[in-house]
Simulated assay, not measured.
Amino acid sequence: MKLERNPFGITSDGKAVDSITMENANGIRCTFITYGASLTSFRMPDRSGHIDELTLGFDDLASYEGNHPYYGATVGRFANRIAKGNFSIDGIGYKIDINEPPNHLHGGKEGFSRKIWEMFPIRREKEAGATFTLTSEDGDAGFPGTVDVSLTVLLTEGNELIFSYTAVSDKPTPINLTNHSYWNLAGSCSGPIYDHILTLHSDAFLEPDEKLIPTGRKINVANTPFDFRSPKAIGRDIEAAGGYDHCFILSHEHALSIPAAEVKDEKSGRSMTVLTINPGVQFYTGNMLSGQRTRDGIAAPHSAFCLETQEFPDAMNHDNFPMAILRPGERYERKTMYLFSVE
């Protein structure tokens, strides 16, 4: 395994940001930066050996400091949406940042995706990566409790990209961490992802309202555009679905041995398998990508997809959802693995 740490740039307020790059013997090469603990690049050969960039991102820090749709970021303290930025814990009400009016999204205006994390490189014989750490103070974005967060990312010689999250808190607080990478297995900005074949092991999804907040209803995918239980082209029913930005309830919760999703691009031969212990995955087809600049060109709607493994959005406001509250003395632990292959 190859591992290389380099300076990535200086923020507008004078703070240093570093990058770390891992490369295995199969030609897979990925880079993370300490700004947002973000995956900035993932490069991989196709069946003919041609190497492409597979994610949306930038080569410069200034672009990550600017406005962008969370390219490759670690998002938190709570990923996805919280209705009107309101929730209660033990009878105490809290009001948090509203950054997607009228709701809270992905940790707020200055969430984990816009913080500089500490980084500690890891290099072993068959895997390499880093542990990123962050302390989120009591009151950060309005959330209660001081939270110590750790993310370990590893690339292995078995073509696995592993994300392991932990957190502890001194007060009860919501917690929901995920990675927000945008993927196109044919190559970044190479066109729409309509021909990608997706299998999603989910029997139901959370019904969203017009602002993408869960209504509380769990809808069976049978006989709907949301049925990916058998392999199906992403583009086949995308118009009928109005684009995908939905939290799917995983059929095999808390089972790293059983795939949550599989995606394949027939042209390149590349495939990705997602395994996780989270209860849900947000499948997003970049519906709101419209003219956003990236290193490889302009991102258009449906030019990339996200599979964000996570807790249920707005979980604190729904008694029938798994509770996403971390309490003192408890330890939040989540793990997601992306396995890549070529046929």
Rank of each mutant, 00 (worst) to 15 (best):
I193W: 02
T178F: 03
K267G: 01
N159S: 12
I20P: 14
N176M: 08
E210T: 11
I10A: 09
T74Q: 13
D209S: 06
L56K: 10
K115Y: 08
H318G: 00
S230I: 01
A204L: 14
V342S: 11
G286Q: 05
A25M: 04
I28N: 01
Q310N: 14
L134F: 09
I92R: 12
A141Q: 12
K2G: 05
S150G: 04
V168S: 02
P69Q: 04
G107S: 08
I89F: 11
N24Q: 09
K2C: 01
R236L: 12
H254L: 02
T215N: 09
W183G: 00
A241N: 05
T215G: 10
G57A: 15
N179C: 00
T199E: 10
G57S: 13
G72R: 02
I10S: 04
I258T: 08
N99F: 02
R114H: 14
D203R: 15
N103K: 08
N24E: 10
A167Y: 05
K109Y: 04
I298W: 11
G9Q: 04
E127K: 01
Y165F: 13
E343D: 14
L154G: 15
K95E: 03
I92P: 01
R43E: 06
V274H: 15
P101Q: 14
A324S: 07
S230V: 06
F283Q: 10
S181W: 00
A37I: 05
L200T: 06
V221L: 13
I249D: 05
G297D: 14
L105F: 00
G76E: 10
V149Q: 03
G139F: 11
K15Y: 07
G27N: 01
R293P: 02
R217G: 02
G9L: 05
T309E: 11
S48P: 07
A128T: 13
L185R: 01
